[in-house]
């Protein structure tokens, strides 16, 4: 649909320009503001894909919490306007970033995105159907005989199923990490003074 395409391109331009801005802008504070703009744009992508739940959670967590933490951290650093001066960590940082990029590109390229064959889906569960649909644009939805509402409902449930089922180990590992971080933060905060 023309309109949704237009929105997609607007969001894409905003997201990419924002990300480039995050890297290039000297002022750390503005950089983190741009970062939250990118987060919102990504949320917009999720809405385009009829994944409202993910979009909302994206905004809630990334913009409402993580970006705020970024800004908080930025506020506590010196010389916000000047940004980071070149330092020794540049080389390893570039290396890791490149590595990440390669990994992501590899993932994108190797994943089989066109799973909507239509055949055999009727016998699978709704969750499996949705997973198979992948990016549910209108044409694919009609082909699979699904409505957008159903997709979102099932997506939410499917997300939960995946988190508690298949990916329970990484999920718990992440929670453990967060717990450790929280306790570490407490220890740091309490160490001073009384």
């Amino acid at each position: 649909m023309w309109f949704e395409d237009a929105v997609f391109w607007i969001l894409a331009v905003v997201a990419i320009a924002g990300s480039v801005g995050v890297v290039l802008v000297r002022d750390l504070f503005r950089a983190s503001l741009l970062l939250s703009l990118v987060f919102i744009a990504v949320g917009g992508f999720f809405i385009l894909m009829n994944a409202e739940f993910l979009a909302v959670v994206q905004v809630l967590i990334y913009v409402g919490a993580i970006a705020v933490l970024f800004i908080f951290a930025v506020m506590l650093t010196r010389d916000v306007q000047r940004g980071n001066t070149p330092n020794r960590l540049q080389v390893p940082a570039a290396f890791i970033a490149t590595l990440l990029l390669v990994m992501m590109v590899a993932t994108v390229v190797t994943t089989d995105w066109t799973t909507l064959a239509g055949a055999g889906l009727e016998n699978k569960s709704r969750v499996a159907q949705i997973q198979a649909v992948g990016i549910p644009d209108a044409a694919r939805l009609t082909a699979a005989g699904l409505t957008a509402d159903e997709v979102t409902d099932v997506q939410t449930g499917g997300l939960a199923d995946l988190l508690i089922g298949e990916f329970v180990l990484p999920f718990e590992a992440v929670s453990l990490l967060l717990l450790a971080a929280a306790i570490g933060g407490l220890a740091l905060a309490r160490g001073r003074g009384r």
Binding site: L33, S36, V56, V57, V59, L60, V63, G64, A65, A67, V68, I71, F72, M75
Partner: peptide, 11 residues
């Protein structure tokens, strides 16, 4: 989610 945008604005 939307009201959490206010946080950023205030900051």
């Amino acid at each position: 989610a939307v009201s959490s945008l206010t946080t950023i604005a205030i900051f």
